[in-house]
């Protein structure tokens, strides 16, 4: 509003006015920046609030749990919750072990398998390619619950119930339509000339895939790997459906649900500590790979 007044200022005071305007503009800029930052920080506080509460509650002494406070008045920090959870032989460690097995297999396996399939769809020529790819894409539209329930009987036949197999074997069969789609998009961006050159050098298709494509696809491979890790880490429905309560193979997500959600047996601070420990690897991985993740998401949404 005030800026609009500037042109009507008398001309003889021009130089002085210009300086004043400049100064004012600078002030306005600073104020605006400050407001922006204030808003940003306030929003960050809102978004980080759940983490904050979780951490605060996890170190609360037992007797303060029912007092509806975030901070203890006694000045005592209780790390006993963490030591209890992580002490040898605790159930949590076995959950962690199972989850790590599944996460390790899928984090390595899914990028490899899906890149293999994507290579077939992106760079190979064979009859019916488009149809097959169309069918693979169409499976994305099928709600997961439809197959989740009948697969139970199939896994029962395989003897897979109460084992870790349902959590990782299916994902090694192609690695999921979304991942194949992403990889294929990425590979199509790699010029065919390079492949032709390699072919002239006598390289077969697998060598081209392994030596040429994989290194070039590194960003998207990393993206898929991180997503697979997070997926395996957080997956709830698969273990919930195929593992029975008290099974040896319960993973973190399910274990935390059974042991800590709404259970009067455990105190809130212990539950929160379990949550913090479960969240930590996700946060660390995210901070390390955030560039690939955020840029990778950009690829996901765009060209369909």
């Amino acid at each position: 509003m005030q800026e609009e007044n500037i042109p009507v200022l008398p001309s003889q005071e021009g130089a002085e006015a210009a300086a004043r305007t400049k100064k004012r503009a600078a002030t306005v800029k600073i104020v605006r920046l400050a407001v922006d930052y204030l808003f940003l920080i306030a929003l960050a506080a809102v978004f980080l609030f759940p983490f904050f509460v979780m951490i605060c509650l996890s170190i609360l002494p037992d007797k303060d749990i029912y007092r509806q406070v975030l901070f203890t008045s006694s000045g005592v920090i209780n790390f006993g919750t963490y030591t209890k959870i992580l002490s040898g032989g605790s159930k949590y460690l076995s959950y962690l072990g199972n989850t790590l097995i599944v996460a390790a297999i899928t984090t390595v396996g899914i990028p490899l398998v899906s890149s293999l399939c994507a290579y077939g769809f992106a760079k190979m020529e064979f009859a019916g390619k488009e149809v097959v790819f169309g069918i693979v894409l169409a499976t994305m539209m099928i709600p997961a619950v439809i197959s989740l329930v009948p697969l139970y009987t199939l896994y029962a036949r395989f003897g897979w119930l109460d084992t870790l197999f349902p959590m990782w074997v299916p994902s090694l069969f192609g690695g999921g339509a979304t991942n194949i789609f992403l990889m294929r998009q990425f590979m199509r961006g790699i010029p065919n000339d390079m492949i032709k050159a390699a072919q002239l050098d006598g390289a077969n298709s697998f060598v081209i895939y392994f030596r040429l494509m994989l290194p070039l696809c590194l960003p998207i491979l990393l993206y898929v790997a991180v997503q697979s890790f997070l997926g395996a880490w957080n997956d709830f429905m698969t273990p919930f459906t195929y593992l029975s309560v008290g099974s040896k193979h319960i993973t973190l997500a399910l274990g935390v649900y059974y042991d800590y959600t709404n259970s009067s047996q455990t105190l809130a601070n212990e539950a929160m500590a379990a949550g913090v420990i479960m969240t930590l690897p996700c946060a660390v991985i995210f901070f390390c790979f955030q560039k690939y993740l955020i840029d990778g998401v950009a690829v996901t949404g765009m060209k369909d």
Binding site: L48, P50, F51, M54, A253, M272
Partner: peptide
């Protein structure tokens, strides 16, 4: 940096979110 912060809650495992809000 702020983008990263705002994205962080997406990474909070659903079970943890559930458990946390259930309690508080």
């Amino acid at each position: 940096f702020f983008r990263v912060l705002y994205y962080l809650p997406v990474l909070l495992p659903a079970v943890c979110t559930g458990m946390l809000w259930n309690r508080i």
